[in-house]
Amino acid sequence: MNIILISVIVLGVVGIFSATILYFAAQKFKVEEDARIDEIEAVLPGANCGGCGYPGCRGFADACVRSLEGKLCPVGGSAVMNKVAAILGAEVSAADPMVAVVRCQGSCEHRAKTNRYDGAKSCAIASALYAGETGCSFGCFGLGDCVGACQFGAIAMGADGLPVVDDDKCTACGACVKACPKNIIELRKKGPKSRRIYVGCVNKDKGVVTRKACSVGCIGCMKCQKECPFEAITVENNCAYIDFTKCRLCRKCVAVCPTHAIVEKNFPPKKEVSEQV
């Protein structure tokens, strides 16, 4: 009986003593931190993808508390940013949701192989070595660096050897854009009902050369630029580019493109569009 009593007392005293030390130590060395950081972190997705440019979600939350200007969580999008703004008592302008877009349609069928790559399975390595398996030195290597870079499983290699982005899973974090050594992937406005139009080619060679290498390459013929009523299309270095902030999805360029290099996504099958604007 005595033994039990003594042990309880000794342990109790030691416990209380340690607790006191800990309490004072905690007071003494306390780090002042804005309580809102925790709150913001709680509403962030928590994937720590780094897509925002900050070291993880907590780093982003910390940055938001200091200034909200120009901050966007690419994963959570405007919904999350509104919550963050609510916590901070500020307003954010709703940014358009973005999505990664692969600007190459050079599948085997359209772009004949002229040699066969036999090295390490990495686009970065192949791209440092040479121009590529086809006559086009700008197109997709199809070795899947973007697939490996995506943390959300939103990119997979399609049957035609080109990466396919899953719109629903894509968070526009931009990891694939950085991973692609050919700068083929671009973040573009997702568009209403995921409808969007873009040039599926980044080939800067002259039209003759492009045409020889690939049947769906942009040959820089300028037809789309002339056709576009909104001046959204520019042709530079033999390659067209559609500015998604100006594009109104009228689809006129798609119709005039002789090589079908301009891609329309998620539109209903084409009916006769009235000519009146």
């Binding site: 002229t114 066969r116 790559y117 090295g119 040479y130």
Partner: peptide
């Protein structure tokens, strides 16, 4: 196999 030339780093 195809007749294409193989390419690999040294």
């Amino acid at each position: 196999m195809d007749n294409l030339l193989k390419v690999a780093p040294s």
